[in-house]
Design a binder for these strands. Structure first.
Lengths: 325, 325
DNA sequence: CCGGTTTACTAAATCGATTTATCTATTTGG
DNA sequence: CCAAATAGATAAATCGATTTAGTAAACCGG
C-alpha cells in the first residue's frame, strides 16, 4: 500500500516538486530536456500515480458531473444518462448517476452530497418539490441543467419534450381511426410531464366533440394500477383504446391484459409514451411516442458544459419533438 | 459563488477551526453546550457546506466506489450495478459507473482514472486482457471484486454464474424434447463466459450421441450476425432450435427472424442466456436462463465492503446458479 | 493550598497537489 | 564590460478540511 507522492518523484529525480508538477501539466516552456528525462524515469521507476483529490482541492475542479434521475427504472432516464456520459467522455469528465426514486427528500440529499463532493455541475430530472434548493443553486451561479420536467417560476436551462402536443396528435390519430372510448392511464399527476400529457389527451377528445368520460382517466400508482384497470373493464362502457403515459404504466397494463387473456392490437389498441427496449421484438403493432433521448441527453450535456466553462448566455428552454411510430 | 469554509464558521462562532471540525464529526465528548449552539448558529447563518475533497484528502477515503462494466448495453450489467448501488447506499457510499465497451484499453484507462480519483474500491466486469494490472492491484492490497467473468491465474474475489452447467441443462432439455439440430449463436469467444457456455453446449450434444455440426456454431460480432444466420438458414440442414448466448445476440436473432417472417416458438425454439426486461410481455414462450443479478450484485458489494473495512479473509470465488424458465 | 485530573478548547502539522513570486545563471546588446 | 533580459528551476503559500499534541481553567481530594 505504498503511496508514491510527487515529493518522492522529485527526490528520486533530484528536482523540486514544482518542477515535477510543471512536467505533469505539460508546461514545458522553460524546461531542460535532461530534466524532463529524469522526471520521466523517476515516475516510471516509482510507479507514481497522481492524486486527483489534491489537485482538485487546489484547482476547484473535480472533472466530475452529477446526474440525478427521478427514477432509474424508467428506461428513458438511462438512455439520456448514457448520452450525457458519452458527451462528457470526450472532455475527460466523468458522470456520477444517482437515483432519487421520485422522492424529494432523497433528491435533496443527493444534490447536497454531490455539491459537497465538489462536482463541477449537475443535470437533474427534477421531482419538482425542491424549488428553493433549485433556486439557490441558480442564484449562486452553479451550473445546472434540468431535463424531462419543467421547473416552475424559475429561469433555468431545461431540455424537455412537447408532451402535450404529441399526446394530442396520438389521440387524434386514434379518433380518426374511429375510436371513441379511449382510456388514459397515468401515475399520480405530481409532475409536469404527466399533467401535460393529460392536457393533450383532453384537448384532442374535446376537439373531436367526444364527451369526456372521467372513468376513462385512471390515475394510480403502479401497485394499485391493476385493481383500477379491473374496475374499468368490468364497467359498462369499455375502452377500445388505451394511452399508457409511460413505460412503467405500459408494463403494468401488459401484465394485466395477459392475465385477462386479452391481446394488444386485437382486443385493444395501445399507445405508449416512451420507447422501450426490445420493442422491435413485439409481434403486435403498438404505437410508441418516442422521445429523442440521445439528442436530449447530448443537448443537456452541451448546455452544462458551456456553463462550466463560463460561456454565459441566458437560460433557455429547449423543447424537442417526439416521434410517433 | 461565495465559498464558505470552516474558517469562516469558526470566526463567526468565535471558536477555532478544530472545534468546528469536532462538532461536524460529532465528537461531543468534551464540548460545552453553548459552544455547540454557537457553531450551529454560525453554520446556519453562513449556509456552510463542508468540502468533501479536503476531508477525503486528509482521511484518504472518498466514500466513492467504482464499477467498471464490460458493456453497459448489456441488461445484466445494469441490474448488477443497481444492486451494488443499493447495497452501498446504506453505508453512504456512492458508486460511479464506467463503461469499458469491451475495450481493454478503455478498461485500463478507467481503472487508472478511478484509482487516481482515490475511489475506495473497484468492482470490475473484466475484459480479461489486463491481467498485469489486475495483479498489481491485488498485490497492493487494493479492494477489488470481479464479477461475471473469471480472471485466469489470479487469486481474487469473484462472483460468477455456472455458465457451463446451466447451458448444459438447457441444451439437454431441448434434446429431450426431440431436437437434434440445435444451433449455438455467440459473439467472439474472447471471454470466459462465452467459452464456458459453448463448453456446456458441446458437452450436452456429445453426451446425447449427436454429431457436432460445426456449422451450427455461429461466432460473430453483432453487426455480422445476420449475415451468418442467413447462410445458416440457406444451408441444407436447418436448425430447429437456437441457443442465444446473451441478450444482444437474442435481439439480433429476433430482428433476423422478423425479417424472414419466422416466429419464435412456432418455427423455431429459442433459449436465451440472460434475462431481458419486458420479457413477460412477449407472447410466445421462450426459454430464458436467468442469472440472479441482484443477488450477485449484492454479494459483490458485500465482498468489496469487507475489503474496504479490512475484514480480511482469503479471496474466494462465488458461483451462483442460474434459473431456467 | 498544592499537585494531579478532568474538561473545554486551540495551535499547528498534515494530506498531496498547484501556483506565484523569487532566485540564480546565462545571454544579449549597446 | 556592465546592465538588462531570459532561461531554468525552486521555496513557500495555498486549497479546506482532520488530527495530534498541548494549554488553560476548573475541579478535587488530602
Amino acid at each position: 500500500m505504498e503511496r508514491v507522492t510527487m515529493a518522492d518523484v522529485a527526490r528520486e529525480a533530484g528536482v523540486s516538486k514544482s518542477t515535477v508538477s510543471q512536467y505533469l501539466n505539460k508546461r514545458y516552456e522553460y524546461m531542460g530536456e535532461k530534466t524532463k528525462q529524469k522526471i520521466e524515469e523517476a515516475i516510471e521507476a516509482l510507479g507514481y500515480q497522481p492524486n486527483f483529490l489534491a489537485r482538485s482541492l487546489k484547482q476547484k475542479r473535480t472533472s466530475l458531473i452529477g446526474i440525478i434521475v427521478a427514477n432509474i427504472t424508467h428506461y428513458f432516464s438511462t438512455e439520456v444518462s448514457r448520452a450525457i456520459e458519452d458527451f462528457f467522455h470526450q472532455y475527460d469528465l466523468q458522470a456520477i448517476v444517482c437515483n432519487a426514486d421520485d422522492d424529494p427528500e432523497k433528491e435533496k440529499k443527493y444534490i447536497e452530497m454531490l455539491r459537497a463532493k465538489q462536482v463541477d455541475g449537475l443535470i437533474i430530472f427534477p421531482t419538482g418539490k425542491n424549488n428553493d434548493l433549485y433556486e439557490s443553486m441558480v442564484k449562486q451561479g452553479y451550473p445546472v441543467v434540468f431535463v424531462d420536467r419543467k421547473v416552475e417560476n424559475l429561469d433555468v436551462y431545461s431540455v424537455i419534450t412537447d408532451n402535450s402536443e404529441s399526446t394530442y396528435q396520438a389521440i387524434q390519430h386514434f379518433i380518426k381511426k374511429g375510436h371513441r372510448n379511449i382510456a388514459f392511464v397515468v401515475q399520480p399527476l405530481t409532475v409536469s410531464t404527466r399533467m401535460e400529457r393529460l392536457h393533450g389527451y383532453k384537448k384532442a377528445v374535446k376537439e373531436a366533440g367526444i364527451e369526456l368520460n372521467p372513468n376513462f382517466i385512471i390515475e394510480a400508482n403502479i401497485p394499485e394500477m391493476k385493481e383500477k384497470l379491473e374496475s374499468l373493464f368490468s364497467s359498462e362502457e369499455k375502452p377500445t383504446a388505451i394511452f399508457a403515459a409511460n413505460d412503467r404504466v405500459f408494463i403494468a397494463l401488459g401484465e394485466f391484459l395477459k392475465e385477462k387473456g386479452m391481446k394488444f392490437g386485437e382486443d385493444l389498441e395501445i399507445v405508449v409514451f416512451d420507447n422501450i427496449p426490445f420493442s422491435q421484438l413485439l409481434e403486435t403493432p403498438i404505437t410508441f411516442i418516442i422521445q429523442p433521448a440521445s439528442e436530449m441527453g447530448r443537448k443537456a450535456a452541451e448546455l452544462l458544459y458551456k456553463q462550466i466553462n463560463k460561456e454565459n448566455s441566458d437560460p433557455e428552454v429547449f423543447v424537442f419533438p417526439s416521434k410517433i411510430i
